[in-house]
């Protein structure tokens, strides 16, 4: 299948369909999707609202707020702020809600296998 190197690894003999149907995996998938999907829709809507405003509401965007700084510039800078904020939010969410359950499943699958170098496989440091 072209995944030659991967098929010799610890996960080669795993029944992935069975893992996929476990409650634990379903929970992981639910947690992942229930965060990334709404968040993606939200930031894309906010971004396109901004693009549409800059495109079709020029007068509104040109309204001066303070000195030469107008609403357009402020909204643009807010895009930076929201991008940084979502990044931080996602990292903290994954650390708390996704990583523990993902490494639990991974340990369950890989058991006590060791890789070529004799190191425990999947020993994600906490």
């Amino acid at each position: 299948m072209g995944h030659d190197a991967q098929e010799t690894d610890a996960a080669a003999a795993v029944d992935f369909k069975e893992v996929q149907s476990t409650e634990q995996f379903k929970e992981l998938r639910k947690r992942h999707r229930s965060f990334v999907f709404p968040m993606s829709i939200a930031f894309l809507l906010w971004y396109f609202a901004y693009v549409l405003l800059a495109d079709y509401a020029v007068e509104f965007m040109s309204t001066k707020v303070w000195g030469n700084i107008n609403i357009g510039l402020l909204l643009g800078l807010l895009q930076f702020v929201s991008t940084f904020a979502i990044t931080g939010w996602y990292v903290s969410y994954s650390n708390r809600k996704l990583d523990p359950i993902a490494s639990e499943i991974r340990h369950g699958i890989e058991g006590h296998e060791f890789d070529k170098h004799g190191n425990p496989v999947g020993g994600a440091a906490k």
Binding site: V14, V19, A102, I105, R106, E110, D115, V121
Partner: peptide
């Protein structure tokens, strides 16, 4: 693919 992508099982170290 789904299990690998979410859990990282078997990903090359």
């Amino acid at each position: 693919m789904e299990v690998r992508s979410l859990t990282g099982v078997g990903a090359e170290k």
